[in-house]
Amino acid sequence: MIQKQVNQKAWFMVLPVFLLVAFSAVIPLMTVVNYSFQDTFGSNQFFWVGMDWFRDLMHSERFHDAFLRQIAFSSIILAIEIPLGIAIALAMPRKGWGVPVCLISMSLPLLIPWNVVGTIWQIFGRVDIGLLGHSLASMGIDYNYTQDPIAAWITIIVMDVWHWTSLVVLLSYAGLCSIPDAYYQAAKIDGASRIAVFRYIQLPKMQGVLLIAVLLRFMDSFMIYTEPFVITGGGPGNSTTFMSIDLVKMAVGQFDLGPAAAMSLVYFLIILLLSWIFYTVMSNVGEESKNGGA
């Protein structure tokens, strides 16, 4: 017969993960923390500067601008992608041959790597050879993302919407599909309008997946780097220099390791803080629906 035994083998199983995390996350992070409190004049000579870099950063107009740009960008992205994603999901067929067609065409953009998306749009939008840019120019619309900050922003936003709305669509669609038919039938019988059905059935039932969608899109857009980098490299001027681009410019371009380290830590903390807020909201909502279901 089976005897109860204390089993410590499990710890060995966890060890590889420990090591992996140590090398890939903890040690690099500690190096960054180390850099952020020191300065160097090259040749591997470091000296302690305390909180200087952080203080500078907090007063740096460049950082403020990048931060505001980043917030503005993420807000615009969420404001467009979430409603648009829900709208497309609502419009998608629920059965028949249309389902696989829609699902596949929706997942296609998600399969394309970031820099390829950037390159596609970079060429697509060029006034000389790009289909979009040339067409717009010939229609008399003044569009040139290399010169006009607004055009550059629009290009990057449209590109991101094109690339990532599908994710919101797929998540929303999954949420919609999980609503039993009886709900729609009951709503019909109760005489609910289309808007009421959305407001009182679909939206509450999609709440869980929508929060995941918002979280994912927020974090992703907050960390955007490749696309603006490929298209304009953060220009024209500094108009599309988001935090990650600014960070790379500082670290790799100017080789200001100390300030860059401080900035990346602050950047990291901001994302951590926002993710924590989302997580708390999400788990609270989850808890509520669990109690209701019990």
Partner: peptide, 23 residues
């Protein structure tokens, strides 16, 4: 229906009033 259909976000009052409100 077999499984109770209720509007989760509404109170009991709002649930009961819903068909009248829609009309």
């Amino acid at each position: 229906f077999q499984f109770p259909v209720i509007y989760d976000t509404m109170t009991v009052f709002q649930n009961l009033a819903f068909p009248l409100k829609n009309r």
